[in-house]
Design a protein around this nucleic acid. Structure first.
Lengths: 233, 233
DNA sequence: CGTGGAGTTGAGGTGGGTCAACTCGAGTGG
DNA sequence: CCACTCGAGTTGACCCACCTCAACTCCACG
């Protein structure tokens, strides 16, 4: 069990430094709500307004819901990240835990009103937003123009960058998300994801260990499969 | 012809208010570079670093280039918008004018270093980034999970919101982008775009006038075709 | 009025979806 | 510690939405 104080202190040290006046921190703390969310559970928040969520621990997916119960995973997030959950509009968004997660949530407008008082704080939120935007744009390219095999290769490389650990034989991944999550993130079906992983295994580009382990044996060759733009202008 | 002073003044009034000390504005002005970009031309900037671009006039597309000269349009932007162009990474990004455009560009890091001095200014950039992020997320859903007809409907409605003008018979659009641009934005081919527009015409949902005019005859019914989530939770 | 690129329409092919059967492995309880 | 179980993952056969290629038409220019 995590206490509110621990979690808020952690958030504070990452995002509120130099807005350090006690009064400022107290105002932010008043808005924060701690939630322990277990595997596969949604974070319950008011979806009429935008929310900000700090991931103290665990890993999450940001899911957009379209008609006919089609889900699209918009982003994965890990400990230390700040995510914004858009207010319900054409689609409805929710944060769902991939593995048990500890989250701090903030109501959007009220949080921003305070954050805007301090240039350092709003600057750090801007940086987080920029990172999310960059990842989302890269995903747009992947979803709009790439084949199934390129999507899988891009996905594995992106995860390697974020949660991979280098080992002797390559890069080791312990994926918190299921095949369904991967499919919902890449705009594919679980069957296609499975088939593409099999192909990569047959090419000796990866090894799979159990359900969540993947070993990237040759990241460089995998990049050639990802549809990235090569060095030319 | 537009003068630098005019353009910068316009940008300033939208994004630099309350960072109004002359010294601050002068520092920002030093970084700004005015560019007149004609139809179908790229804005030429150093793609090794992130750039920010203010659209004084005209309309633009942000294009990502993947391997095998596949292009994905990541976003369209219109007068008054601020866009960030990511530094070249896995893909290369560029801003291209749909119609003759007047742009102010700023080198990313140096611009942000100054913007961060003023909470109001960086806050306004945060808001612009948030809007871009929201649009990009919605596009992710469209590209990941929607059929060709839903993509077209979503596109038309999104454009109606941004550049549509209400008329007696519905909403009138004067699209600055070609069928190819629409296709590259929606992850389709020009042929598919054309066929879907024909279908909508046959259903009396739209009328097309010339190459760039589209009249949305029944926006409500079009929303039903867009794959949006209906009112239920 | 003529020209050429943009847009449309048609015919046929294919990558990935769908449906169904099967296998595996992580967790449970004996 | 092992057998059982059930959902997750894999594999196969078939199908369809969209892509590809090609011919044609139509604006928007000069």
């Amino acid at each position: 069990m995590t206490t509110f104080e621990q979690s808020f202190e952690e958030f504070s040290s990452r995002y509120l430094t130099d807005g350090a006046e006690p009064e400022f921190r107290r105002k932010v703390a008043c808005l924060a709500r701690l939630a322990e969310v277990s595997r596969d559970q949604n974070l319950l928040v008011d979806d009429h307004i935008e929310q900000f969520v700090y991931i103290c621990d665990g890993s999450t997916k940001l899911v957009a819901h379209a008609s006919h119960s089609r889900d699209q995973i918009v982003a994965f997030h890990f400990a230390g990240d700040v995510v914004s959950i858009p207010a319900r509009l054409h689609h409805s968004y929710s944060i769902c835990a991939l593995r048990d997660a500890t989250l701090l949530s903030f109501p959007g407008e009220r949080f921003l009103d305070i954050a805007r008082e301090n240039a350092g704080v709003i600057g750090r939120l801007f940086a987080a937003s920029s990172t999310s935007l960059l990842r989302c744009r890269e995903k747009t390219v992947t979803l709009g123009r790439k084949s199934a095999s390129e999507r899988i290769a891009s996905f594995l490389l992106a995860m390697a960058e974020r949660i991979g650990t280098p080992v002797e034989r390559g890069i080791s991944l312990d994926l918190p998300m299921s095949r369904r999550d991967i499919a919902d993130s890449l705009g594919l079906t679980i069957e296609t994801v499975s088939r593409q992983l099999t192909l990569l295994r047959e090419q000796s580009l990866i090894e799979t260990v159990g359900r969540s382990g993947i070993l990237l044996l040759d990241p460089n060759r995998l990049e050639d499969c990802a549809g990235y733009l090569s060095a030319a202008a």
